[in-house]
Computed example of a mutant assay.
Amino acid sequence: MKSTETRTPPSPGHAEVRIIAQTPEAARAVAEVLRHCFAGAEQRSYPGLHGDTRLHLTVDTATPAGPARSWLAASLAPLGTGAHADEV
Rank of each mutant, 00 (worst) to 15 (best):
T61D: 02
A65Q: 14
D52N: 15
T4D: 08
G40C: 08
T58A: 03
R28N: 07
A83S: 11
G13I: 01
F38K: 01
G13S: 10
H50I: 02
G51I: 02
A62I: 00
T61L: 13
T58R: 09
H56R: 11
S45F: 04
L79K: 15
R7P: 00
H56D: 09
S70A: 14
V17I: 15
S45V: 05
T6M: 07
A74W: 01
E25C: 00
R44D: 05
A39F: 00
A26D: 14
A62T: 05
A15K: 03
A83T: 14
H14C: 06
A27H: 06
L57T: 06
A29P: 01
A65S: 10
A27L: 01
E25T: 05
E16Y: 04
Q22A: 13
G80T: 09
T53N: 10
A83G: 08
V17K: 02
T8W: 06
T8D: 12
Q43Y: 01
L76D: 15
L72D: 09
I20C: 03
R28S: 04
I19H: 01
A74Y: 01
A83D: 09
P24R: 08
I20G: 07
G82I: 14
L79G: 15
A27R: 03
F38A: 01
P78C: 06
V59H: 07
V17N: 02
E42P: 00
R35T: 09
T61A: 08
R18G: 04
A85Y: 15
T63D: 11
G48Y: 12
T63S: 14
E16V: 10
P64H: 07
L76K: 14
A26P: 00
A27C: 05
A31H: 03
E32M: 03
L57S: 06
R44E: 07
R35K: 14
P9I: 04
S45M: 09
P67M: 05
Y46E: 14
R44Y: 13
T63E: 12
V88W: 03
A39T: 06
T23Q: 10
K2D: 13
R7N: 00
T4H: 12
A73C: 01
R54N: 10
A83L: 11
L57V: 07
F38Q: 03
V30L: 11
G13N: 09
L34E: 09
L57M: 05
S75E: 12
A31Y: 03
G40H: 10
A15C: 08
Q22S: 11
T6A: 10
W71Q: 04
P64D: 04
G82P: 12
G48R: 07
R69Q: 13
T23F: 03
G40M: 04
G80D: 14
T81D: 13
G66V: 00
Q22P: 00
D86V: 13
G51W: 08
V17W: 02
L55R: 08
K2I: 11
E25R: 07
R44Q: 11
K2H: 13
V17T: 02
A15D: 04
A15E: 06
V59E: 04
V33R: 10
P12L: 03
I19D: 04
R18Y: 02
A31F: 00
T4C: 05
A65W: 05
